[in-house]
Structures are given as C-alpha cells and as structure tokens.
Amino acid sequence: MSSTGSPKTSPSIEVTAPIDVIASEQELVIRADLPGSSVELIDVRFDEGTLSLRATIPPRQLESTAYLLREFAPTVYTRSLEIGEQFDLDQVSADYESGVLTLRLPVVQAKKPRRVPITGG
C-alpha cells in the first residue's frame, strides 16, 4: 500500500457502539459492530451490575496519508449497560469475528422461567 510502516498514533474520536440485544429463555445475546478492532483491543467488564465495553479501532494508515475520501477514522467505541441479576456473569462468553463482538449471557439456571404443565380432564 502507499502508506507502509507503522501508522502513527492520532487522536481517536469516542463514539457509542451500535448494538443488537436479543433475548431468549436461555440467554441474552449482545452483538456490537466494532469493525477494524482486534481481540487485544477490546475490553469487556462487569462491575456492580454494569457491563462496560470499550474497543479501540487503531489507525491503519500513516497520519500523513492524503485521503481523497475519508468517512471514518481511528475510533474508540464505548457502551455501558446495566445487566439484571438473572444472568450468570461467570458463564459469559465473548467472541470477536468479522468485526462483530458477540456476548452471550446465560440466564441463571434457577431463575429460568419454567413451563407449567397443563393437565386437562
């Protein structure tokens, strides 16, 4: 590419990561678009019921690159959500693939809704 070598650090803008949250009886799935990040640059943590997400999108080109068109730049994505107590935070899984972070929060076993058997006469 035209801009070889290690990109210089440039100031990153901080934006809110767009997410989907999908609920089922078994789990809560949170997906966040974080294109251009990497596993090492994503930090997910739970603290007192709050899930905090922070992902850095580093510069890919030299700071001196003369862009003909520039619609995105180095970014820090953040997001914080309060998570209910019904999820087992010790069993949360996180996977980053194709620029999308997927978090799976299983429902605590004892608190899963149970189907009530119906008998008829």
């Binding site: 934006v15 809110t16 767009p18 709050t50 209910g84």
Partner: peptide, 21 residues
C-alpha cells in the same frame, strides 16, 4: 419478569451512534 429491566442504558460521554447504522 425475567427480562424486565434486563437492560438499562448507562449514560455515556460518547457521541451519538455512528453511521454504521
């Protein structure tokens, strides 16, 4: 009940959701 208040947005200093939307 299980999913009531599952998620509550925590105010962020970040800007609005970007145009990936």
């Amino acid at each position: 009940k299980v999913f009531a208040n599952v998620l509550r947005e925590v105010p962020s200093l970040g800007s609005a959701i970007p145009s990936i939307l």
